[in-house]
């Protein structure tokens, strides 16, 4: 299986830890970059997720606040729910990932991921509470900053926007500090 190549004398790299169907991250980065060309040159709307997502959240508020309450909210009045390009892009992101996961036959139910269980054990409740709270914080932060990893991190950074580079660098600093705080556990097997 790991015979040296006749032509080059090199061994084919076989990584048992590399999950199936995964592409080189640089190639994926180039793909997203080229997709940005289309987003700017053709559609005139940078890639982004959270603007549509916050508009979608107004639907969840409907049962509690009523249609009038939602319409009167100054934020949702600015970005009301509608099936615009951003919302369809969001739907497409889900569908594209579904196509990818089915075609690579890597679909599997996941309740507690391995890095989490290594630190916090296999409790499903613990993981779900963290995911829910984390999701809430991330969305609040994204709206306050004006974008997320896509809208600021990629689309904004590639336009060399001051706001987006500030977002990108602050996000990485904050994430690294949080990760250190949450996942610090100095056991031998970690090293």
């Amino acid at each position: 299986m790991n015979e040296p190549n006749e032509m080059t004398g090199l061994r084919r790299e076989v990584d048992p830890l590399k999950p199936r169907g995964r592409w080189n991250p640089y190639v994926v980065g180039v793909g997203i970059g080229v997709l940005s060309w289309l987003a700017f040159g053709l559609v005139n709307q940078p890639l982004g997720i959270t603007t549509a997502l916050s508009a979608a959240s107004s639907v969840c508020a409907l049962p509690v606040m009523g249609a009038e309450g939602v319409a009167q909210n100054p934020y949702w009045a600015k970005t009301p729910f509608r099936w615009d390009g951003g919302m369809l892009f969001l739907v497409g992101t889900f569908l594209g990932s579904l196509v990818s996961v089915l075609s690579s036959r890597t679909f599997r139910w996941e309740l507690v991921p391995s890095t989490w269980s290594w630190r916090f054990g296999g409790s499903t409740w613990k993981r779900m509470v963290a995911a829910f709270v984390g999701g809430g914080i991330i969305m609040f932060g994204a709206r306050m900053a004006g974008g997320c990893t896509s809208g600021h991190g990629i689309s904004g950074s590639l336009q060399l926007a001051l706001s987006s580079w500030t977002f990108f660098l602050t996000l990485f600093g904050s994430g690294a500090l949080t990760a250190w705080f949450v996942f610090r556990k100095n056991t031998p097997e970690q090293r």
């Binding site: 997720i49 959270t50 990932s97 995911a131 999701g135 932060g141 997320c148 896509s150 977002f167 949080t178």
Partner: peptide, 24 residues
């Protein structure tokens, strides 16, 4: 931007995804 990105970083580590990758 700074406050929002700080919250975003905290949330991203707890959730383990950002909004786009979470949807994916």
């Amino acid at each position: 931007v700074v406050l929002g990105a700080t919250l975003f970083g905290i949330g991203m580590v707890l959730y383990g995804y950002c909004p786009g990758t979470g949807v994916a």
